[in-house]
């Protein structure tokens, strides 16, 4: 049961209502909208992360699911397992959030590199030289930094969600393709 009351969508200013209509009328947004001085800036950040063509939707979901699992975020898992089913097999999802047997699940080498970076960073808070070098060789500076932005966003968000003990939405799902354009 959420430890902070959720705002009502009807009482949001028009731009926030429109944003939620695009991205989903989710509990997480109704929670964060309690902080109207910072919520609109946060939504712009989320839009850029999901509208960017740098990574495939599948790659983003691989990373987000891994962060959600390592941060033990019931809410992120609840949302993103459902979203990931559109592009990942059950075996792949279970490898990310349960068995960790990435080799048997048929991930691409690039996905495996992203999973290695995510796991090491979330569990040790840093990257060894060889892990960093391998990731830089695969992704280059721009995509590697953007990968870190995705990890950073979901690692931090998990803390908010866990602290508040936010309930997973019964039906509503986040829309990764809910960009304005």
């Amino acid at each position: 049961m959420s430890r902070i009351p959720l705002t009502s969508i009807e009482q949001q200013p028009e731009p926030v209502r429109q944003w939620m209509a695009r991205r989903g009328n989710l509990n997480v947004f109704r929670l964060l909208a309690n902080a109207p001085h910072v919520f609109p800036g946060w939504t712009q950040m989320v839009d850029e992360l999901f509208d960017s063509p740098t990574f495939s939707r599948r790659m983003r979901e691989v990373v987000i699911l891994r962060v959600a699992h390592l941060q033990n975020s019931r809410y992120e898992l609840g949302q993103h397992i459902a979203i990931a089913r559109g592009g990942l097999t059950d075996q792949q999802i279970s490898a990310i959030v349960e068995t960790e047997d990435f080799d048997a699940a048929g991930f691409s080498p690039t996905e495996c590199t992203a999973l290695d970076v995510t796991t090491e960073l979330c569990t040790t808070h840093r990257l060894r030289d060889d892990t960093f070098a391998a990731a830089q060789a695969v992704f280059g500076d721009e995509a590697l930094t953007e990968l870190l932005m995705i990890i950073s966003c979901y690692y931090g968000l998990a803390l908010v969600l866990n602290a508040v003990d936010l309930d997973v939405d019964a039906q509503a799902r986040f829309r990764p393709r809910g960009g304005a354009q």
Partner: peptide
């Protein structure tokens, strides 16, 4: 370096 997402991250930081 993450030019496609950096501006949004900066805007969010400015708000905070």
């Amino acid at each position: 370096n993450a030019e496609k997402v950096f501006t949004g991250w900066m805007v969010a930081g400015n708000a905070a």
